[in-house]
Design a protein around this nucleic acid. Sequence first.
DNA 1: AACTTGAAAAGCGCGACCAC
DNA 2: GTGGTCGCGCTTTTCAAGTT
Length: 300
Amino acid sequence: MPQKIDFNLIYALNLLLEEGSVGGAAEKMNLSAPAMSRILGRIRHQFDDPIMVRAGKNLVPTPRALALKRQLSDIIEQATALIAPTESFDPQGLERTFTIRANDIFIGALAGGLLETLREMAPLSSLKFIAESDTDDDALRMGKVDLVIGSSRNWHPEIKTQSLFASTFQALVRRGHPIIDQVTPETLTHYPHISVSRRGRTQGPIDDALRDLGLQRNVALTLPGFHSAMMLTMKSDFILPLPRHVLQGVSSVSLPLVEIELPLALESVFIVQAWHPRLDRDPAHQWLRQTIKDFFLRRE
DNA sequence: AACTTGAAAAGCGCGACCAC
DNA sequence: GTGGTCGCGCTTTTCAAGTT
């Protein structure tokens, strides 16, 4: 039998931690201080923790309370969204900055088009793109980022994802690179490779495909972003594998680089948008996700 | 000054009972 | 069977006084 939960206590605890005092929380809840003190007592019993303890004439939260505080605002936000009536959403009147995290080339290739679409539909809103990091899950949880666009991977179970499109690997080499005359699985292993990975990964689907053929490439350099990788590729014999959609982003820019098709049986890479469940029912966020999804559907 | 606690009052849920 | 009333008991609140 699960323990009966009094959600009023959750709300009261959130106010207590926000206000840092029984009196302050009591005022917010339109109660007397003694009544609030009683509620604090019930919270203490429920969580089996003092929650707030005296420090001189003030109350300070316990470590348990601080840990709870991080989750409380999410829970209350979700509960509020659950209860709130669903109003018709009009992006024309929306004043909001959406923070989207994506890789550097992706931003360069797509931010313009997406911004144009957004400005037509929601002229009072704006986009803020920030670079990828290896802590995307945390950024979504903390509300620092509204949306992450990137490769599908093992997201935290709570994070929601939606597939946007599939991409396959190609590669870039410098103009005049000797491999251009003969691109075979074997010649791919004759030159050093650059791996672009913000998590420092050196192995991927290319290594798997080569291994199936009894071959192994030399990943001599791992970099966190595509810009620096391309700069180095221009001036060396490095081979820079990268997803096709990233290449589309730089094809309009004339760089001394040549695209080569990888003669390997490579599986597609799926690009997804990912968000925190507390934004799942937010009408503005729903609209943003749909707009992005439609944007990529039109490009296919 | 702010929080806690004891006592009393008020509010509320629930079962029992009755009238229709 | 349905709806209204009553009484009991539990929970929550307020007031007043004590404690930190």
